[in-house]
């Protein structure tokens, strides 16, 4: 496993940039297999790992990182279980679906077929608790953020911009055009593990007939 770069991100974190961007989730999993880090956060092209400088020096933290990277090659990482999500597309659940399909010169069915047949994976989470950036969307489909973000986007809403889906786990403001709403509960605040979609999760989207 090779890194393109390892950058000190202040006094208690390193940012790792893998040579192969697809390795981010395996690296994060290998790091997490040792319970010595504060946070391990996957970004678009990086993994940020936080350590406690009272417990280990910057140099020791670096050594632990490199020994975890060796594990990535030795032990195949399993990754999270794939998840199937059912997506509702009635007018209330999918206010921007028709506009998005028309912008691509497609019927609603053809547009959705292109999306559901894409190889979808949770690329990272961020922006808000449980908000999942899903990559792998057929990148010939075009789409961009709404000119006027909504004050309220409902939990479960699936947004679309070129190359990505954005899945809202909670009600909140949102700037992505919404092409559907999943029926599954994505966030359970009473659970010790409140977020359903972990980084690296493969997703199958189904439109109930």
């Amino acid at each position: 496993m090779t890194l393109q770069k390892i950058i000190a991100c202040g006094d208690d974190a390193y940012r790792l940039i893998p040579s192969d961007n697809h390795q981010r989730h395996a690296i994060a999993e290998a790091l997490r297999s040792k319970d010595i880090w504060g946070e391990v956060v996957v970004g678009r092209e990086s993994v940020t790992v936080q350590y406690d400088p009272y417990e280990m020096s910057p140099e020791v933290a670096r050594k632990h990182i490199f020994s975890a990277l060796e594990q990535v090659d030795l032990v195949p990482q399993e990754g999270p279980k794939p998840i199937t999500l059912r997506i509702r597309i009635d007018e209330k659940s999918a206010p921007d679906l028709l506009t998005c399909a028309e912008a691509n010169g497609l019927s609603i069915n053809d547009f959705l077929d292109r999306i559901t047949s894409s190889d979808l994976v949770v690329d990272m989470l961020g922006f808000a608790p449980g908000f999942a950036y899903v990559s792998g969307v057929d990148d010939t489909l075009v789409g961009q953020r709404l000119e006027h973000p909504r004050q309220l986007t409902h939990a479960g809403s699936v947004g679309f911009i070129q190359g990505f889906l954005g899945i809202y786990a909670l009600d909140g403001p949102g700037g992505w055009p919404i092409i559907g709403q999943v029926s599954e509960r994505l966030f359970d605040k009473t659970s010790g593990n409140p977020v359903l979609l972990a980084p690296g999760t493969r997703i199958k989207l189904e439109v109930p007939q």
């Binding site: 202040g10 970004g43 678009r44």
Partner: peptide
């Protein structure tokens, strides 16, 4: 810039 993990204090 590609989104990356960020922590309080940044």
């Amino acid at each position: 810039l590609p989104s990356a993990g960020i922590l309080p204090g940044a």
